[in-house]
Nucleic acid binder design. Sequence first.
DNA 1: ATGAAAGCGCTAACAG
DNA 2: CTGTTAGCGCTTTCAT
Lengths: 338, 338
Amino acid sequence: MNETPAGRPTLETVARAAGASRATVSRVVNGSTTVRPDVAESIRRAIADLGYVPNPAARSLVTQRTDSIALILPESATRVFSDDAFFPGVIRGVGEALEKADKQLVLLLASTQSSHDRILRYVHGRTVDGVVLASMHGADTLPEELRAAGVPVVTSGRPLGEATVPFIDVEHASGVEAAMNHLVGLGRRRIATIAGPQDMVAGRERLAGYLTGLRALPGAVPLVEEGDFMRQSGIDAMERLLQRDPGIDAVFAASDLMADGALRTLRRLGRRVPDDVAVIGFDDVEAARFTDPPLTTVHQPIHEIGTRLAEQILRLVAGEEVEASVVLPTRLVIRESA
Amino acid sequence: MNETPAGRPTLETVARAAGASRATVSRVVNGSTTVRPDVAESIRRAIADLGYVPNPAARSLVTQRTDSIALILPESATRVFSDDAFFPGVIRGVGEALEKADKQLVLLLASTQSSHDRILRYVHGRTVDGVVLASMHGADTLPEELRAAGVPVVTSGRPLGEATVPFIDVEHASGVEAAMNHLVGLGRRRIATIAGPQDMVAGRERLAGYLTGLRALPGAVPLVEEGDFMRQSGIDAMERLLQRDPGIDAVFAASDLMADGALRTLRRLGRRVPDDVAVIGFDDVEAARFTDPPLTTVHQPIHEIGTRLAEQILRLVAGEEVEASVVLPTRLVIRESA
DNA sequence: ATGAAAGCGCTAACAG
DNA sequence: CTGTTAGCGCTTTCAT
């Protein structure tokens, strides 16, 4: 059922059909200009007639290129994957940009620790020309190992330690500070935060932004509970926050999902939003427009992160230099919750 | 910066270092048992010392296998991608199952029409051993074209027309019927539905389930508004529904996102859920547990769809037979909204 | 402008 | 159990 009677046509097949040599056909296939127009034309016809498609394996073997890029999503990423629009958005961004460059996207899900090795093997085998790493946790050794393997790498999110590879990130802290200023301007004085995991840069920097922003309020004490960026943790953290200080009049959550969770707890406990408590999130995912009330949030250009990642890795693969880092702006999107 | 001083080690390099022939080294690499233990051992050591990793291109060239599977997400899928947990869930399922089989996942995003051709070329080039197609729209010609190309294919979701390739789907209609029975049992008599797009099987079958379920209510007339599975369309459809019949006491939405939208409209218009209007969704995405009130919904095993898809394509690629279709059960998950 | 020839790194008969 | 020998399909000098 899978037998191809005559086998797929090869360069040789086309060459014979067109009365040319393999080399010339190869030139036509690769768009060389040094082929006589009429010859090129007859070769193109033969290609169409025979339905010839180049064999990428054979091509890679000699060119040492594969024209494909790996996107690695570590465990921490896939865990959040189920209810967060961030990674799907990045995937889309990277995918679309790569498609324009006629490169393939190979998705490597590093769900378990063992897949770490598998990925390294894979990359070592040079099945891809470059790697885009959606790194998240600080302890991640993958960026460095990949770099050591000699593969072009770019990561999403600044690494926690010293950055050894180029990365794309967004202005977490300044976005949060804008949110804090907004709250202060609204007259809020008891501002709490639901922070993200402190082993991720995004979690740390957003918390730093909160602390900085709080300085605009002389004498104000930080009120922090930590979550894991997901909804349930926002629900729980908000409860703890209210227990610690029932007089909270505003809360900044480090993700929209956690902010939504906070909204739920506030509603359950009879607090009106934004009248009693103002709430601001971070991410500006689609769902933030549909919470009740709609969420004021710090927007980050998710799709652009993807396209920039793609852009950078394509440059690196082409042997060009790239900036050590690109940090995209964030901005406050004001909706009814604050 | 990318120059490898000595070039990557090849079979030949290893063979010389271990004092064996290329063939024997190849045997060791591929786990053949017919190699003398001590020889195998010294070869393994040489492999480790040199950091040898097989070149997949060279291997594919001769074996005609690539050990990778493509997952194609058509335009309709990527559009929903931004706020729906369905495709991310399927990707995870497929990815994990493939990882266990030591196969790679190549993600092909068919965002535009032009990418249709690109994909076909890609598949024709045999860069992948098989294809998993997340087909959705009825008019989709891709399944048939891929089949014609002679590549093993399995699709997610029964095709609208005649099924020409094996597929995995869920019991849409019976799940909806269970939801309808539940509503009827609750004493609801004016049951409306927010249907999905009618050019998708999921949309059609869920509507069919509604119509069938309605028959339990003698004399009841269908009340249908169509959405696109996303939140905003649920908001809008619910408004139209209420305009057509303010006395509606229950609504079945063909997706959780649309059900959430309906919840919002109902709340805005002062209807209490479930007291005045009961609401049931479909999908059982994570977000359904966090709507207000939590959504009663028809559960479909998203992750399992992914693993089954992987299982099937691996079978096909291995030359084994597979069932023409696998239809997974759905079940009603009762929460506070109905 | 075109062809001949070499070879990318690997596997798979086939001998031995 | 191991080595020799052919290629897999393509690109790329190097001649012509």
